[in-house]
Design a protein around this nucleic acid. Structure first.
Lengths: 140, 140
DNA sequence: ATCCCTGCAAACCCTTTGCAGCGCA
DNA sequence: TGCGCTGCAAAGGGTTTGCAGGGAT
């Protein structure tokens, strides 16, 4: 999915929820839609500002909350850093964080997912959501 | 392991690192050692206060940091709440959080651990630490 | 013309820290 | 007695919010 298609998806999701697309939001959605990494609110603010969006940090947070509430953006909170945000299209995945470089890699493991569900079920629970992060180092 | 044995272990770890056992710390260690749940700093502060320890919240944080640095206490950060602390004796485990009651259950899965290591290895990494939390709901 | 939105700054929550005096070892 | 410790209060970082004016629908 290209960035503009994704941005339009964001707009649609907001409009559907009766949320207005302002100049600031339109700009922000595009910044977010084209992010390849996992930026935090401050980085999104900077990028939007560089793009001439004239947005305040408060609006960045407010828009991210709205997008998250609509389920089109995921907030990811790694240990000891500000929350990061990623588009929620695409399939579920977990994260691997290189502790030396900070680089984030996404991965999926159906087997782990299945085991998690089994463990929960054994204790009489069903999984609502989960968080799995591997903090790793490049093997020597 | 009973609470007092655990508390003595904490004291030993601190002393070994050249850290003094003050009245406040001794009290705090006992509160922590006898915690069955996963209390956060404020709760530990309250319990210590109720026990007549005369401790300040700052000291609670400072002592917890020291214990964590010695590896005898683990700081656990669940999504959207203050950090919790648990004694680090016993074996590694992950956490399951009941989203309705907030109750925390510990669990282990060697198979998941193994799969994590495999996934990291496939990408040329080795795991430094990981975080796995299942947010669950009692099955109907 | 509505209301929702915006920017700003202040407020928030959790946690850390500077300081001057206190008390373990 | 030395040096780490303590309480207090202020600072800190990330995030949220109250307010009065502005703009999308």
């Amino acid at each position: 999915m290209d960035a503009e298609t994704r941005a339009l998806g964001f707009e649609h999701a907001l409009r559907r929820a009766g949320i207005r697309i302002t100049r600031q939001r339109a700009a922000l959605l595009r910044v977010l839609a084209s992010a390849e990494d996992h930026p935090d609110a401050t980085q999104l603010f900077q990028r939007a500002t560089e793009a001439g969006a004239g947005v305040s940090l408060a609006t960045v947070y407010r828009t991210l909350s709205a997008l998250e509430a609509q389920g089109v953006v995921l907030k990811v909170e790694f240990a000891g850093e500000p929350a990061r945000f990623e588009p929620a299209d695409g399939k579920h995945h977990d994260h691997m964080i290189d502790v030396e470089t900070g680089e984030v890699t996404e991965f999926v493991s159906d087997r782990i997912e299945r085991l998690q569900a089994e463990i929960a079920a054994e204790l009489g629970y069903e999984i609502v959501r989960h968080r799995l992060e591997l903090y790793v180092r490049r093997k020597t």
